[in-house]
Amino acid sequence: MSNVILSTNKLCKTFSNGGMQQHVLKNLDIEIYEGDFTVIMGSSGAGKSTLLYALSGMDKPTLGSVRFFDEEIAKQSNDMLAVFRRKNCGFVFQQMFLLDNMSILDNILASGLLVSKDRKSITARAKDLLTQVGLTEVIWRKFPSQLSGGEVQRAAIVRALINQPKVVFADEPTGSLNSAAGKAVLDVLTEANNNGQSMIMVTHDLKSARRGNRILYMRDGVIHGVCDLGKYVSGDKERHDKLQAFLAEMGW
């Protein structure tokens, strides 16, 4: 078994609206392994995204701990977390969240230059990655608003990968894309995972879920079931059936 990158212990997160509490995560204990493409599934409101953001240090849990290797991140200050994120985490969001006042390349460099001061090499790496995800030079100079959703999302993935993070967190990366663009984005993510990139993705889309090799199913703030699938191979019927059986059992 490979190393545990992220683990939680009795992780809880509570929201409240007008005083009414809502416990979105309840005493959650999970482990995420290095090199895995972990997929978190579950019905909406099950706490998938909340878990993702608690794991990535974007949000602070109410109770419990989150460990990144041996580092406790749940209690760190905002700025320490920011430094933690820039080194160890990459993010891909459903709404992309690229900075709309900068060109694509600048967007990536704004992230890359946070970690590396070697402007030349980071630019080279950015261009390399952009080419890899199929974005041509013409696009680099454009602003996010001038591109299609799929292109922007691929650029966002490049931004997530630029600092060679330990984990990439993806929150429904294909949620706002059509199926063709979604497939391209998923291909890019799979490719990165095949290159050894650990990945955690939240989705409620079966096509996306198929790409993962470990599925966590959440219900009512707890992990309802886990399914180990093995590496994704395109068109593997048996694997697909196993996943469907798992999801059926989970009542998806």
Binding site: T14, G19, Q21, N27, T62, L63
Partner: peptide, 24 residues
């Protein structure tokens, strides 16, 4: 009966864990 959170969240995580305990 759920425990309502007060505006200042005076009791902090106590409120939340108590309510969570109730639910569990």
């Amino acid at each position: 009966l759920p425990l309502e959170m007060d505006r200042g969240n005076l009791f902090g995580a106590f409120t939340e864990s108590f309510d969570l305990m109730r639910e569990e």
